[in-house]
């Protein structure tokens, strides 16, 4: 995992020293540089396009766009707050469920599973990642939602109903179901990367620990997780990035309603599902512009989250990764 990643600067450096004199390599170098610059231009271009298209909405609503919970196409009054909360809340729920689950799966596959089980189970987990998100959405709507409304939500309401999070009618459609579907979607990403990280823990470290009389749990807690901390964080952020922008699966089960509620049973909305639902039919300019600004907000959220992740990983690197 660590070894495979080579930064662009390193690659250019290698080309510089070794083979600069040859024509072919010079051309090759020019082509690859143009590709790299092209990506950068594309990135900047997307930001500029989003910014430009959302100017009418930015002028009209200003900063209050981020804090207003209005969404009224008839009166042309728009705000992003409910969609932002929905995006962050569904992602948080998904991470809360997916991180412990995928750590468990990865540990089992890397350390505890008998040899004959590792390959088929590992492949099965990776295949989960290949299922298109719309299939997760349909499964969530037709299979998971009835289970949630008939069994899970009534049980939660009976046992934890004193908390505001588990109140209201058990519809099976809403924030909780959306979080659950998202968790299942990102689980294979986190699990398979984490398994690879665990497999890279040096055998002699583990053997030494076992030799000193450590239990499996102690080896996991004190050797494997600290050693793979950085890789695991990378896997988690990979999953988080996917959860933030996930569209179709969420649209199917989140309920698409512009209401804020403490209850996780209640329907909500996310930025991506709002865009998927309303883009084709947005008929006024300010409506369209507000939708584009929502896209810009999502872009910035993802950017900030991944930026923090990068910084954190860098800091970890300098500290020696432990």
């Amino acid at each position: 995992m660590h070894g495979q990643r080579r930064s662009p600067q390193e690659s250019v450096y290698h080309m510089n020293t070794a083979t600069q004199s040859r024509w072919g390599d010079a051309i090759f170098r020019a082509i690859t540089i143009s590709f790299a610059i092209g990506i950068l231009l594309l990135f900047v271009g997307i930001i500029i396009a989003l910014w430009h298209e959302s100017l009418p909405s930015i002028h009209k609503f200003g900063f209050s766009f981020l804090t207003s919970s209005a969404w009224n196409p008839v009166k042309d009054d728009f705000g992003a707050w409910i969609a932002i909360v929905g995006t962050l809340l569904s992602t948080c729920l998904a991470m809360l469920i997916a991180i412990p689950l995928s750590l468990g799966v990865a540990l089992f596959l890397a350390e505890l599973a008998p040899e004959w089980m590792k390959a088929p189970f590992g492949t099965a987990i990776e295949l989960l990642a290949a299922i298109p998100s719309i299939v997760y959405g349909m499964w969530g709507l037709f299979v998971l939602a009835p289970i949630m409304s008939d069994y899970v939500q009534p049980w939660l309401a009976d046992h934890f109903g004193f908390l505001p999070f588990f109140t209201g009618p058990a519809m099976g459609i809403g924030m909780l179901t959306a979080g659950l579907v998202l968790a299942l979607m990102i689980l294979p990403f986190i699990a398979s990367v984490t398994r690879d990280v665990f497999l890279m823990v040096p055998q002699n470290l583990k053997e030494a620990a076992y030799g000193m009389g450590c239990t499996t749990w102690e080896v996991v807690r004190d050797i494997m997780i600290p050693y793979g901390k950085k890789g695991i964080a990378g896997a988690v952020f990979l999953g988080m990035g996917r959860a933030l922008g996930e569209t179709m699966a969420v649209t199917f089960v989140i309920g698409n309603a512009y209401h804020l509620s403490w209850s996780l049973f209640a329907p909500g909305n996310s930025i991506a599902s709002t865009l998927a639902n309303e883009f084709t039919e947005a008929d006024s300019d300010i409506y369209l512009s507000s939708l584009v600004e929502l896209g810009l907000v999502l872009f910035l959220i993802t950017f900030i989250v991944l930026g923090i992740a990068q910084l954190w990983l860098k800091r970890g690197q300098q500290g020696g990764g432990r």
Binding site: F142, S149, F252, Y258, E281
Partner: peptide, 29 residues
């Protein structure tokens, strides 16, 4: 609220397309 292709619904949840509304109504008692 008024008359439009989309309004600020005070209650409820939204399904995508006629099919989406039909699916939600069929699922939710």
């Amino acid at each position: 609220l008024g008359n439009a292709k989309a309004v600020a619904w005070p209650v409820g949840l939204g399904g995508k397309g006629n099919q989406g509304v039909a699916a939600f109504v069929n699922k939710i008692n």
